[in-house]
Deep mutational scan, measured.
Amino acid sequence: MKVIFLKDVKGKGKKGEIKNVADGYARNFLFKQGLAIEATPANLKALE
């Protein structure tokens, strides 16, 4: 799953980066902790 990092995550990505991560890791950790959001077209446009 492609995500946009909202904060730096050690070993995974830095704020503003778009990367592929495992679906479960994204849903169960990154999204719940507020560290990333899904890289949807609307979210990508908002990032610009």
Rank of each mutant, 00 (worst) to 15 (best):
A36I: 09
T40S: 10
P41M: 11
D8V: 04
V21D: 02
T40Q: 02
G24K: 11
V9W: 04
K14M: 14
N28L: 14
V3K: 00
F31E: 03
K10P: 15
V9L: 06
I18G: 01
D23R: 13
I4T: 01
L35Y: 11
A36H: 01
I18N: 01
L47N: 08
G16P: 00
L35T: 03
L30G: 00
K45Y: 09
I4A: 02
E48A: 15
K19E: 04
A22V: 09
G34Q: 09
K7Q: 13
A39D: 02
L44E: 05
N20R: 09
K14Q: 11
K14L: 12
N28V: 08
I18V: 11
K15R: 12
L47Q: 09
K10L: 13
K7N: 08
L44H: 04
E48S: 12
V3M: 04
A26K: 03
K45H: 10
I37A: 08
E17P: 00
A39P: 03
K32H: 09
L35D: 03
G13Q: 02
A39V: 05
I4Q: 02
N28K: 14
F29Y: 14
K15I: 10
K15V: 09
L30D: 01
K7I: 11
G13R: 02
N20K: 12
N20H: 15
G13A: 12
V3N: 00
T40P: 03
K7L: 11
P41E: 14
K19H: 10
G11Y: 08
E48M: 12
A39T: 02
K7S: 12
R27Y: 12
G13V: 06
Y25T: 07
A26T: 09
A39Q: 02
D23I: 15
K10H: 12
G13F: 14
L47R: 05
L6M: 08
V21I: 10
D8R: 06
P41K: 09
I37Q: 06
Q33V: 11
A39S: 04
E38Y: 06
N43A: 10
L35N: 03
V3L: 04
Y25N: 07
E17I: 04
K10N: 12
E48V: 11
E17A: 05
A42G: 11
K14T: 10
F31W: 03
E38K: 07
I18Y: 03
D23V: 14
D8S: 11
L6K: 02
Y25W: 08
L6I: 12
G11I: 01
E17Y: 03
K2V: 13
A46L: 13
G34D: 07
N28F: 12
N20T: 15
N28A: 09
K14S: 10
V9A: 04
K45M: 14
G11E: 05
V9M: 06
L44K: 04
A42S: 11
G24L: 13
F31H: 01
K2E: 11
K14R: 12
D8I: 03
G11Q: 05
L6Q: 03
N43P: 03
E38P: 10
Y25D: 07
T40N: 09
E38W: 07
V21Q: 04
V21M: 10
V9S: 02
N28M: 11
A36Y: 01
E17V: 04
K12G: 14
G16V: 01
L30F: 02
L6E: 02
L30P: 01
F5M: 04
P41H: 11
K2L: 10
I4P: 00
Q33P: 02
L44G: 03
A42W: 04
A22M: 10
K2H: 08
M1T: 13
V21L: 06
A39W: 07
K15N: 04
N28T: 10
G16T: 02
F29M: 08
G24F: 14
I37S: 03
K14D: 06
M1I: 15
G13S: 05
Y25M: 05
G24Y: 14
G16W: 10
A39F: 07
